[in-house]
Design a protein around this nucleic acid. Structure first.
Lengths: 203, 203
DNA sequence: CTGCAAAGTTGCAGTGAGTGCATCTTTTTC
DNA sequence: GAAAAAGATGCACTCACTGCAACTTTGCAG
């Protein structure tokens, strides 16, 4: 037995600490604002030393966002895994919709809480966008591979960037209105994009 | 009769100091990296006190980027100023192309220098994207007014976001290859967008 | 169970970002 | 030529973040 497949006590505790820190960060920032909270506050709320906080996150902002480092890779794989009959744009669309489904089921409440905090702090928004940039790079690679173009060609870059734009619009509208479910808004935006944006919907 | 309606000596000096700080920031960061430069270094190179630095910029990053706070308003006005016969998408396209022309003529060399620094520092990239977000908000307002839709409707938000995406792609390709002029790359991306991104160019 | 190694946690000290306040200097205005 | 307005500066302070050196917990044999 080289190694038990399950995670040991050590890893479990580590994840708990990470979650406790992130949860505390979101809660405290929601209540007191980003500048009204110190790393010491967050650490205290999670019952660890301030020094330990920095063993998990590079700063307050990252603790609040707690980005998923594997999302890019999943999306990239998703784009490549779509049936060959789909166009590249359709493949990206399906992969994104699948990912959105996973995200929401996994973490619905904490995600909306996080989002409302991000709305009120431009600095956090900046980091979210930067994170999206990272993800976008992976998606570009997936598209490029799928259509057989280099990663620095216009088409893969633009398809990824435009899809990202549609995603951001959908999320913004979803969090603002709350009326329609996110997948619906996302499909609406992607359809509009596929229509070339020539004119506003003639409703 | 010292009442010259133009800008006085005070304002001129202020602008000079601002430029000196920004130039020093870009130069020093280009040479030593973002973390190899302190605010003190930048201030010294610009011959002002560190305290004064913070009267102009909120931090190193902003000094490097020195964003133009009026670009958003110009673009918004540009969108509204296009001839009525143009579609909304065409209006945004023309306004953006005009703005790109202005930017490049005004500041060509320092802009490419800035860009190469940004490329190597994800933190700076994050702030650029956040700045783009601000501009995008203005463009959304311009589009919404032009087509008579609310600012939180999908169409204005998506047109602005997708155009922003095309712009970023064009800039990325321009700085990477350097082959074609920026307006050409921008037109290429916008055309692809208008075609709905259904398929890669069949060349 | 016992001891050892690996990994995680903590305290400490130090650099540097960023801010509020009082003071000084320069420009503007009357 | 002052008084007033605005900028520049120094000072003191808080907090972010890092490297380093213990110290504690967990994992793994023997």
């Amino acid at each position: 037995m080289t190694k038990a497949a399950g995670e040991g006590l050590r890893d479990r505790k580590k994840r708990q600490t990470r979650e406790a820190l992130s949860r505390a960060a979101v809660d405290l920032v929601a209540e007191h604002g980003l500048d009204g909270v110190t790393v010491e506050d967050i650490s205290a709320a999670a019952d660890v030393s301030p020094r330990t906080f920095f063993n998990y996150f590079t700063g307050k902002e990252e603790a609040v966002l707690a980005p998923d480092p594997e999302m890019g890779a999943r999306l990239r794989a998703g784009v490549l895994a779509q049936p060959a009959r789909l166009s590249a744009a359709e493949a990206v669309r399906e992969a994104l919709l699948a990912e959105v489904g996973v995200e929401l089921n996994e973490d619905r409440t904490s995600w909306t809480r996080r989002m409302s905090v991000v709305q009120q702090h431009p600095v956090l928004l900046a980091r979210v966008l930067a994170g999206g940039e990272q993800v976008e790079r992976e998606v570009v690679a997936g598209i490029a591979e799928r259509v057989g173009l280099p990663v620095d060609a216009t088409y893969p870059m633009l398809l990824a960037a435009a899809t990202g734009a549609a995603f951001r619009v959908a999320v913004a509208r979803w969090s603002a209105t709350g009326s329609a479910p996110l997948p619906t808004l996302l499909v609406e935006a992607l359809d509009l994009l596929a229509a070339g944006l020539a004119n506003p919907p003639q409703s």
